Amino acid sequence: MDPTFELTAAVISRLKADAAVSSFVGARIYDRPPDGTISPPYISLGPSDALTDDAECIDGVEVTMQIDCWSWGSDGAFGSAEVRKIAGAVRAALHEADLNLPNNALASIRHRITRYQRESDNTTNRAIISMTATVEIP
């Protein structure tokens, strides 16, 4: 089975099961958000890529995934507070997590960088989280 598919499913499952993450977004965690209007806060998966990362006698793939956190929340003069808290919960849930992949083996998953931005509507706050995982393929 494709390791990126398994990793995506495991990440979504972990985020939905994490109490800190769900306290902000409930079950609104999507690979692709449904059509129509979705009110933030929510989490969606952005682009990902897979790079062959073989070692001696081991087939492997390095997967970089983008996780987007969305919020309209404001906290007085500090309007991006909610999205920053959501991003922190996502990082804590996934950084060096032990995720079970049914057919492949997760060697590691690590946080690389989080970027914060206000979208062009000047209302929506976004955190763009980059995670890198190494997956061994049997």
Rank of each mutant, 00 (worst) to 15 (best):
N103K: 13
I29L: 01
L99A: 01
P33Y: 09
A9R: 15
V63C: 09
S108F: 09
I12R: 05
A93L: 08
Y116P: 03
A81K: 12
V135F: 01
V83C: 01
A105F: 01
R112P: 05
G79H: 04
Q117K: 10
T123V: 11
G76Y: 11
A97R: 06
L94D: 09
V90H: 05
A107V: 09
E136A: 09
T134D: 04
A27F: 08
D31F: 12
T64R: 15
G79C: 02
F78D: 13
S44V: 01
Y116Q: 02
R28G: 02
C57N: 14
A27P: 09
D35G: 10
F78Q: 06
L106Q: 05
Y42S: 01
V61R: 15
Y42H: 00
E96M: 09
G60Q: 04
S80Q: 13
T124F: 12
M65E: 05
G60C: 08
I128T: 10
L101P: 10
S39F: 03
E6W: 10
V135Q: 05
Q117N: 07
R110Q: 08
E136K: 07
A77D: 13
S23Q: 10
S108G: 00
P3K: 03
P33L: 04
A87T: 02
A87L: 05
E119N: 02
A97K: 06
I128P: 12
G60E: 09
T124N: 14
F5Y: 14
S22W: 14
L101T: 08
D75G: 05
T64V: 15
L101M: 12
D53V: 06
D98Q: 08
A27R: 07
R115K: 09
N104R: 00
S130Y: 15
A10H: 14
S71R: 02
A20M: 11
P47M: 14
W72M: 07
S44F: 01
M131P: 11
A133W: 03
K16F: 11
I86F: 01
H111E: 05
D68F: 06
A27G: 08
L94G: 08
L45P: 04
A127T: 02
L15Q: 00
A77H: 06
D2E: 12
I67T: 02
D68S: 11
L51P: 10
L15K: 00
I128C: 11
R115H: 14
S80M: 13
S23N: 11
I58K: 07
D75C: 04
P34V: 07
I38G: 01
R110E: 09
L51H: 14
V11T: 00
I38A: 04
N125R: 08
G46F: 00
L7K: 12
V90T: 07
P40E: 07
D75W: 04
E96R: 13
E6Y: 14
N104D: 00
A87Q: 05
W72S: 14
T123F: 09
E119R: 02
F5G: 12
G60L: 06
A133F: 04
A10E: 15
T4W: 08
M131T: 12
D121Q: 06
F78G: 02
A92H: 08
R28M: 10
V63K: 07
H95W: 12
T114S: 14
A87E: 04
D53K: 14
E82Q: 14
T124S: 08
D31M: 11
